[in-house]
Design a protein around this nucleic acid. Structure first.
Lengths: 245, 245
DNA sequence: CGGATGGTTGAGTCACATCAACTAAAGTGG
DNA sequence: CCACTTTAGTTGATGTGACTCAACCATCCG
């Protein structure tokens, strides 16, 4: 947190995000010519609450998340908001051949991002063998995540959705850190979770309460950004993720 | 419809589908060695109700749908069934770098499929320029469809879901044929639609009735396979697709 | 110390899931 | 070609769970 851009705490959902985007694109563009070996020099530190890519923006590159958590959101024609996911360390966002971003990406925590120029990446796609493998893996992971989301939305009860979401969070952050998975970090607001699950915020809160009352999870304070949950009974949480049981 | 496999009309959801699958895999495997130039000779005619790929099956190739409609379904660990979509002419299914198919694909109508060997395709991916473009487009379309599904599942009311689904069907089949979009062809059962929308079949039926009673759609008999719907008021159908209006 | 945001809790309404019975259509076998 | 069986779809009655509106805490900020 030293050489990052100015305005460490700018409001989100403001016209200024336009500026932020431009600024970030500039930075990215200058970084697109990164040699294959250098890694750390290209990594950018981004404060929390920053809009990284904007829905409808021209798609020039992608970001690999080195650390931190982001939020992918979308606004439909009729004004509804949809949250597509909360990618974290190790994932790459915005890597499609499309013309423009279909969703906005915003940092939920302090994040370290490594910009990847699409052109450069695809040049290497033609030559480099490991890059091609990574790309295929990325496609696979992308499809997997979308299907997981669909599976969650197909669940009937709110507790099932929430429980499945928490379980997915465990496995996601286990990949990142070496945690045993007893503590879940939730950098996003409960409203964001509710939107992701397509339920009302109140329902989300009540579902949380039910899991707490059932001695399945427990409040475990809050970390740097976001609250912590402790898994008391993972088996029961897994059962709660199923619909009719 | 001449040199197709035996058993033109076998039951689905039976233990026999196991047999059908094996048989089809044989056929497919024999077709994987298609030369790059020949196109029409590799197209296979497949009867309706045939399982083309099986969930968990080893992924060796993909299919480009020349004509007809398929159904992509998935069975979760807890036994629920999820329907991921109804791809039709022009779409390619099973084209990922993953190890095994995550979903089953079944023909809803008589279909013409062109098998594509993954290896061959990706060889051309390295050289051929247009193949790379098509591949990127495919990825983009894939993501788009998944997000559309997520958007539908995020809707609250059943009529909204159904209306949005019908609208998506219009635009999908307009790409295929030159239809003006007043008539929708629905090769899938209403139960399949309900599963796709994550609602109960009865609710789906009632939502249909509401649209009929509202003079938005109209029953228009049935074609070769599946019923036909006539759009009476597309504007109203589009409004029905929004949640609070 | 107010203001704002995120979260909780309560009461009421309504829509959907569920169970059930019934109709329609299509496939089966004599 | 006609009974018979099976499957898809419809309609009704009923309970429950989630959305909505509302008021109320907690926390974070300036």
């Amino acid at each position: 947190m030293n050489n990052m851009a100015e305005k460490p705490e700018a409001g989100k959902f403001f016209p200024e995000q336009m500026m932020l985007f431009k600024e970030l694109v500039e930075v990215s563009t200058s970084l697109f010519l990164w040699p294959e070996d250098v890694h750390d020099r290209t990594v950018r530190n981004v404060p929390a609450g920053r809009v990284v890519v904007r829905q409808g923006g021209k798609q020039e590159g992608a970001f690999e998340i080195v650390s931190g958590t982001l939020k992918l959101s979308q606004v439909t024609e009729d004004g509804r908001q949809i949250i597509l996911g909360f990618p974290s360390a190790g994932e790459v966002i915005g890597l499609t051949g499309g013309k423009e971003y279909r969703y906005a990406a915003e940092t939920l925590t302090i994040a370290r991002l490594r910009p990847v120029l699409w052109k450069a990446f695809y040049e290497r796609l033609l030559r480099n063998h490991s890059t091609r493998e990574k790309f295929l893996d990325w496609i696979d992971a992308q499809e997997q995540r979308a299907q997981d989301h669909i599976a969650i939305l197909s669940l009937q009860s709110a507790v099932s959705k929430l429980a499945t979401f928490l379980l997915s969070r465990i496995s996601q952050q286990r990949k990142g850190t070496g945690h045993d998975g007893m503590i879940i970090d939730l950098p996003m607001t409960q409203r964001d979770i509710a939107t992701y699950l397509a339920i009302a915020p109140e329902t989300c809160s009540r579902a949380m309460k039910k899991l707490r009352d059932g001695a399945t999870i427990e409040d475990a304070g809050r970390s740097d950004k976001g609250q912590l949950l402790k898994i008391l009974n993972r088996e029961r949480l897994s059962e709660s993720g199923m619909d009719h049981a």
